[in-house]
Design a protein around this nucleic acid. Sequence first.
DNA 1: GCGACAG
DNA 2: ATCTTGTCGC
Length: 232
Amino acid sequence: MCIDRRFSRHAWRVTPEHARRLQEELRHFVIPIGTLSQLHLVAGADVAYDRPSCRMFAGIVVLQLPDFQIVETRMAVRQTTFPYIPGLLSFRETPALLAAWKQVSHTPDVLFIDGHGLSHPRRFGLACHVGVLIDRPVIGCAKSRLIGTYEEPPPTRGSTSWLYDETGHIIGAVVRTRGGTRPVFVSVGHRIDLQEAVRVTLLCSKGYRLPEPIRQADQFVERIKRARRRTS
DNA sequence: GCGACAG
DNA sequence: ATCTTGTCGC
């Protein structure tokens, strides 16, 4: 029986209440400023789940610019130990992502994470959590909204609009990385400002909706999962 | 109580 | 995220 089913019955180390308290504590360590002095190596991180075995496959792919050639791929497998709860995603995926990160030898100039950063209920989404722990520039790039309001950006590639919180403060950007398709939600993860995050996201978008680093990480973990689906 | 809700 | 084949459209 996997953790998602045990959830309603009992036992984990960190309860949702505790997790939220930790986010309120850790949010103060996020550095929402900074620009990249160079952009030679970029990386993307993502996680895939295998329902039946309750395992998760975290992967990190490092690419070199300007050709986007893959220079390194690393992965880690972990048993799922925390349920998916909107706003607490990092407590589910961070352990596996960190395990994969520790194996990376080509330290990238920036890391793209598949999820939100500051555009989060407590301003501490997955991108911030991972960013603070590895203390490296991280950009949060999510495929859908978690919180905030925004106006649909023009349908042409490169157009953007801001994402605001209930107070009217900017917490992220809605970016059209490709014409004719839904935009992505970019936010600060760590050690980079929003403007720079948007700029780099567009620079790394190679004709697809998802920035190339994340798209590659996506395919990578998907392949790993299929290849190991029958092993235990 | 009702609707929203990253992956 | 995952379950899943073909199909409509640029």
